[in-house]
Every structure is written in C-alpha cells, then in structure tokens.
Design a protein around this nucleic acid. Structure first.
Lengths: 147, 147
DNA sequence: TATTGTTATACTCTATAACTATA
DNA sequence: TATAGTTATAGAGTATAACAATA
C-alpha cells in the first residue's frame, strides 16, 4: 500500500480518483475493523441507519436511496431479519411491498454501533481537524453531483 | 443513487466514509467512461503510468507500490503484455524476477490516455475549482495515512 | 530459509435476466 | 402494462495457500 524504498507513484499523485481510492480504502479499513465489535458491515450499518431515520420505507426505496440494486438488497435484508435486527411488515397500502422496521434489538445494536462509529469519526478528525472534515464533506458532496 | 422524493440518508450524511464512497463511485464512473476510448481500466492505467515513471521495476515492486497483491498482478500484466503495451524482460541481476517496461505502443497509448484523463480532471475542477482540488488532495493524503 | 512469479481457489460486490404476485 | 420482491447467475476485485525456480 505504501511507497517502498523511495519509490513514488509519480503523476498518479495528482489524480483525484487515485487519491479518493486510497483514502477510501484506508478509512473503510478502519471503519470495518471498528464495526467488528457489532458485527456489521458498512452496507448493513447504512441500512439500519436509514430504517431508523425513515421507518416503514419499502425495500426498493431504501435500496435506491443507498445506491444498492434491489436484487442485491434481498440477501442483505434477509440477514438483518434472521439476526432479529429488522422486520418486513406487510404494507397496508400495497400487498406487493414490504414496510421495513427496526426491531428493539435492531435499535439497541444501532445505538451501540453509532457510539463506535463516533470514535472512528474522532480518529479521522484527529487527522484532518473539525474544519478539515467540514471542508472535505463539502468537496465530496460536490464531486458526488457528477453521478 | 440519489434521494428519491424528499428522502435523505439522515445521519449517514455526516460520515466521512459514506461521503468518500459516494464521491469515489461518481468520480470512478466518469473516469471509467472516459477511459473506454483507450480501453483501459483504472488499475491498468495506473500500472502503465508507474512503468513509465520507473522503468525496469519488477512485478512485486509495482504491485506493492499500487496496493495490488502480487498474485493478482499476474493476470493484469499478462493482459497488458498480450496487448503489446508492456513487456517482461529478464532481470540482469536476479533470474527469478522480471523487469517491466512499456513498449512503444504502450507509451503511445499512455500518452493518449493521459490527455483523456486531463479532460476528466478538468471536469472535476469544474465542480470544485483548482483550490478545491488542492485542498482535497491534501485532506485525502492525510486520511490515507490511516492505513 | 526467503523471495519471485505463478496457479488454483474462494469470497465479496456488483450487475443482468427472468419469474410471481400484485397494481 | 408496470412495479415489488425474488431467484439464479455472471463478472469484477480481492484474499489465501501452495508450488517451482532461484536467491
């Protein structure tokens, strides 16, 4: 991952995409390690968080919101349901769709997860500062508009 | 990928890792589309660039520099060699290792690729400005230290 | 003994096609 | 006709183990 010896990646250093990939890898590695404590992968954590913010959304809506294909979302929600963290309830208005909710256990685990994530975020702030984080989020949001 | 209706991802919005992932996805999507013109994937492009900056490195060295496992590097360099863009030369000092070089065709394609990448980078600068890019690269480099 | 390149292999993510039941 | 959930499947990218040749 690093510059062995005195070698550098040359002109690659000036590429936004390359810098993004390396930073994302490093940050995710720390995040994943952090979340081993609650046995949640990044995608699972993000789904729990969205279910907490918007209870009762259907699968397609959460998947679209997070950029997950609805077809890949099935196994993801299956696992959360089998672990007793989330539940599929029948939608009152549309018998095709499931309304998704956190269970009590899901809310409890999410609370623990968010505390752990806060420590992770503090580590990042230790590297770039509070102002750095604010700047970074602004810049990344503008880049994400490209999609 | 976007906020359908008025839905938002809630507290996820404040997570550096999430913002990094979304931005990286958007930037890579543009990059990959850009590079279809020269039929190079991001990893292939980065290898060509490093071979140009440091001619004669062995496989292990380039792989380590770019964070690629040497075992996965084999197929990558195979393809570049079969396309006539790179060549494995016998190392003068170590009969176990290959010294890697760009061919003429490889240098020519890389030159075309870099011009195309420059347009891609200009699009990004259009979103965040030259100062924004400079700030971003600095912040991302500091985050990458986490690895 | 350790390193270089290699093969085989497996696991995760992501992507597409096609089915069913409902709308 | 179109949509929600689902299954099956295929392709990237990435990870480990084990081997032959060489150091």
């Amino acid at each position: 991952m690093d510059e062995a010896d005195g070698l550098d990646v040359g002109r690659l250093q000036n590429h936004v995409g390359y810098a993004l990939r390396r930073a994302q890898l490093a940050v995710f590695q720390d995040f994943i390690q952090t979340m081993e404590k609650v046995a949640l992968r990044p995608a699972q954590y993000s789904v729990l968080l969205v279910m907490d913010t918007h209870p009762g959304l259907k699968q397609t809506e959460i998947a679209a919101l997070l950029g997950i294909k609805r077809t890949n979302f099935v196994a993801l929600i299956d696992e959360l349901e089998h672990r007793g963290l989330a539940e599929r309830a029948p939608s009152p208005t549309d018998r095709r769709s499931n309304a998704l909710f956190l269970t009590k256990a899901g809310k409890a685990l999410l609370a623990r997860a968010e505390k752990t994530v806060a420590e992770h975020e503090q580590r990042l702030i230790g590297l770039i500062g509070v102002d750095g984080k604010r700047q970074l989020l602004g810049l990344l949001a503008r880049l994400a508009e490209l999609a």
